[in-house]
Design a protein around this nucleic acid. Structure first.
Lengths: 347, 347
DNA sequence: AATAACATTGACAGCGGTTTCACCAATGGA
DNA sequence: TCCATTGGTGAAACCGCTGTCAATGTTATT
């Protein structure tokens, strides 16, 4: 295995000191005469020199590495990347980060174990965190003092920047959409309602819409378990077979909505003819689903991109501690497709 | 910002030398007496010491970092993570790698630019590469001399380990499935047929099946463009509206198949009543699609897991150069669902 | 011509670890 | 009692790079 060239080799080849090489490497060429600079660049090219980030990270205390955390399934430890909502976001985060010369360490976080290890071991320059975790998790993270942006979290701490949507409003919007079309027995199918999580807010919006329309909130109509197709499917079957009064379903994620629809069909009823369904997210599959899903749209790509930018903004400022944390909210809108049917006024 | 503890702090606290600390850190405790070891462990706990991987990487020349490369869209630079096929694989790779203490750097690779930079900058211990790239890309990669496993590639070089499926057979299987059910005008809808890529082989299998059944191969019946829902949709529309003779479609990826089906419906025809469709991959969505997709199944999770294991095997051997590169092939099978209809024998 | 001011450059001390190697008991055998 | 061993330990070199600072060479100023 032939050794890779180090900065010393370059220095020797160019007949200068390593410091000079370091200067041109770091764009401090004003400290070096133009022709030495050229000689050095020549040497770099010639020797095929590529600097070692570990060494650099060691002295600069900056790794150009960003941690990205995705929720993982509870049972196995797999990332919930199966939900296109996350993949789409990760993909956008990655491209934005790469553009600025950062690399991304993708990881789940083991229950119990903290993310602390990874972040300090690797000297992460920052982290983007999706999903919601135990409070202690955030506390630890804060101690590391690296810039962090939270996606879809309502953790209230000025240390964290956040990007998300107005989930309460989204839930409200979805439910109103249904109510306006004459539905009054509206089920909510959702992942677990956790404190400071998005579902909690959507749930709140759901209840507000109900209240404003003078509809009695029926706890039996909320089906809460997990954000998965599988659970949606179960809930859909139950609703279609055991709850003839329900005419519409608000699923708090498109993936869940797909399951619900399939479950309803399995039980021999039709969407939207018998039961209407509205989702949340507008992942790209929703457009192609049959029937195309009516849903609350958020710009997922933008969300990822903005999260990356927010983080970079803090990292690249001169005084990261001083930079104001921001909170950006991506707009929401209903996109009407074919899974919601207006109810005929009761005869 | 309070400074993190270094190995020196630990040494001082425990009243020993840094070497001793390093020993217990690296499990070489036989070089240290039991009670010094205990004292050291105590100090580590007390000071909340976490070793710095950059420093370690510098001297050990091993970073515990694995690069994972995913194809990206040609236009934008986003990762094709939108295809659940990739997300599912990445998710499994990540969990397997993390289990062994490695972290994963997820990245696309800019057209033209090489991956070389990243891999040597970061001192990657290995890389897993999905998809197919220009030949030069592999040549460069080889120079870096890090262990690499290729997923779904037919690059023929003993340096690379590979995991994949028998794509030719898969293509054959799918096409036979259609032929056996009476179809003779079978379209192929596929991403671009690139040398050493999986589609090329599936295409070959398709042709072989045709040949064996004495069906004339009609180039007009292959629709080649990109692995995307959007293209499938276009192709589906074209097939349904301009090719009344076609009764079945083999799409070389489930995502494409979804598009085809939707396109066919858009053109006012039905699947499988008018046209049958078979896919490839069996991503988890295929099960939930309406109608559930008949497809060639491969165990995607296993594929990811095996790739990770193959890589670890090489990395963790004492002489990585000596270890035999392996080629593992994941089995394939047809899973019959509801998008293929047997044709009545011609009257 | 002497001095001040500036532009270049290189030596060197870390950054936080690992590892070699020499050293110092303490033990056992002669 | 003396000399090899042996196990435990620490000093120091080093990994590749950056940044400080002093030393050099050049040019401008008086």
């Amino acid at each position: 295995m032939k050794k890779r060239a180090t900065i010393k080799d370059v220095a020797k080849y160019a007949g200068v000191s390593t410091a000079a090489v370091s200067y041109v490497l770091n764009g401090k060429e004003y400290r070096v005469s133009p022709d030495t600079a050229e000689k050095i660049r020549e040497a770099i090219r010639e020797l095929n020199y590529i600097p070692d980030y570990s060494a650099r990270s060691l002295v600069k205390n900056a790794s150009k590495l960003i941690g990205v955390i995705i929720p993982q399934t509870e049972d196995s430890k797999q990332l919930i990347l199966e939900n296109p909502f996350y993949s789409e976001m990760v993909s956008n985060i990655e491209s934005r980060l790469r553009e600025s010369g950062y690399h991304l360490i993708l990881s789940g976080v083991d229950k119990g174990e903290s993310y602390l290890d990874l972040s300090v071991q690797r000297n992460l320059d920052g982290a983007i965190i999706m999903g919601i975790y135990p409070e202690q998790f955030y506390a630890e993270l804060k101690q590391v003092e690296i810039p962090i942006v939270l996606i879809d979290s309502y953790i209230n701490d000025p240390w964290f920047s956040k990007v998300g949507v107005d989930d309460e409003y989204g839930g409200y919007l979805a439910t109103c959409h249904l109510i306006e079309r004459g539905h009054r027995n509206i089920a909510l199918v959702t992942g677990s309602i956790r404190k400071d999580g998005v579902v909690e807010k959507r749930f709140l919006g759901y209840k507000r819409a109900l209240r404003e329309a003078d509809i009695f909130y029926n706890p039996d109509h909320v089906f809460e378990h997990s954000v998965s197709y599988a659970y949606g499917y179960e809930a859909g079957k139950t609703i279609a077979s055991k709850h003839p009064e329900i005419t519409a379903v608000f699923a708090t994620a498109d993936m869940v909505a797909f399951g619900v629809i399939q479950g309803i069909k399995e039980a021999g009823r039709e969407v939207p003819d018998d039961i209407s369904v509205i989702g949340f997210d507008d992942i790209f599959l929703s457009r192609m689903f049959v029937p195309p899903l009516t849903t609350v749209r958020q710009d997922i790509a933008l969300k990822g991109k903005r999260a990356a930018e927010l983080l970079l903004e803090i990292i690249e400022s001169d005084e990261p501690e001083k930079i104001d944390r921001k909170e950006v909210t991506i707009p929401l809108s209903i996109v009407e497709r074919q899974t919601v049917r207006p109810l005929k006024p009761r005869s």
